[in-house]
Amino acid sequence: MNNMPKQFVPLLLASSGFALASAPAMAAGVPAGTLIENTATASYDSGGGTQSIDSNTVSLRVDELLDVAVATRDGALVTIRDSAVLAFSVTNTGNGPESYVLTASNSVSGNDFDSEIDGLAIDTNGNRVYDEGVDTLLANGATSTSIAADGAITVFVLVSAPTGISDGDSSQVQLTAAASTGTGAPGRVFSGAGEGGGDAVVGASGADDDDRGRLAASFASLTLAKTGVVSDPFGGSEPVPGATITYTIRASASGSGDITGLVISDNYPTGTTYAPGTLRLGSANLTDGTDSDAGEAGATGIVVRAGTLAAGANQTVTFDVVID
């Protein structure tokens, strides 16, 4: 219990020459445990001159108000392919230190899919970004450390995508923070459970609050299309021995997000032989050998490492074979 003599605050301000007498702004109100003491003084003239008298001092202690506010810190949809991190602020809007039971729920009506809750984390270093191995992990449903009155923490909800979801599917995850002292209708009293031995009283929030973070599945899907054009040695397009077939493999990404680590491979058709030096990725020639460039033409087929392909983009691999 911190018995700071609040009633003396105006006197300190006065000594600095200001008439600003109001107590320091405190969103959550005066701290739990603060003593409010009131004494009146009278002066009067009576027979023997001016006299002065004090009343008794009435004193009461401010009890602890249990309140909390939860808000998503994600300004927009958070995209998810395999996993994602949602961020929430949990603010102690009460007037005493309090810890909160933190529970994430994946089951929100209207969800296209229910993501899996892998766990929670507290933003230990305060940068509002989840740092694996740095931020303290917390099991779903566990209790936070104590948050000072008016203080806030960032809570991360770590989620994974279930199988079978499609690009554009949406989902919400709800984080609830409930005062560990207790919750209930505003005005409910937990005797002796407040800061400094006073009572704890449920505030307007009901001592719990929740908010939702929004997820959008972001998948790119790949389409491969292969075409072959025959050029015979006589200027025609007959597939005769000695004719060249130019194969084009077109990789197209659709949906949203990126396709990463794209590798395109193809075997030469039976009865054909690769035409050396014809392998290309887009407009770039690739050497046939296994070296630092993106592809090679081996004895039985070609392999091209096309890398990352953004949704809506495409990439083309071409090579020639000669009919035996």
Binding site: V9, A19, V30, N38, A40, T41
Partner: peptide
Amino acid sequence: VVENFVVTNPLPGAVALAQVGDFDVSVDD
């Protein structure tokens, strides 16, 4: 008879006056 009866009450810092009444107020301590 008691004359010039003046009762002064400093407000505790943790409260704010809710409404004016049959009294004078000070904002400079």
